[in-house]
Amino acid sequence: MARTDALQGSLDLLVLKLLAKRAPLHGYALMAAIQEISEDALRVEQGSLYPALHRMEEGGWISAEWVSSDAGRRVRAYSLTRAGRKELEDAARRWSSVTSAVNRVLRMA
């Protein structure tokens, strides 16, 4: 899958990580969780989240099914697949290498 920028990569990473810990989650819950854990530092646009979810679903990293939420509403809940778990490891490794590289540059410059 073409990765257009680092931010998109980080959104994928966040989603995968959250799903690895707390699956199943539906779209709104994912959005709220990212916002809450990052203490409002990261805000995900709905317009980015759903296309990303659907892209990852087509890519076979996550799977979705319609379930009833705690409040009794019908929601589409996502969970991680085996390929997704592997992608999470790769993405996390990529992320930490990128962030450590950026940190090094910030320190040394």
Partner: peptide, 17 residues
């Protein structure tokens, strides 16, 4: 249908929150 349904459910969640 799937996409519309999902967006619909998101809106509901959002309204509830």
């Amino acid at each position: 249908r799937e996409i519309a349904g999902e967006i619909e459910s998101h809106l509901e969640e959002e309204r509830a929150a």
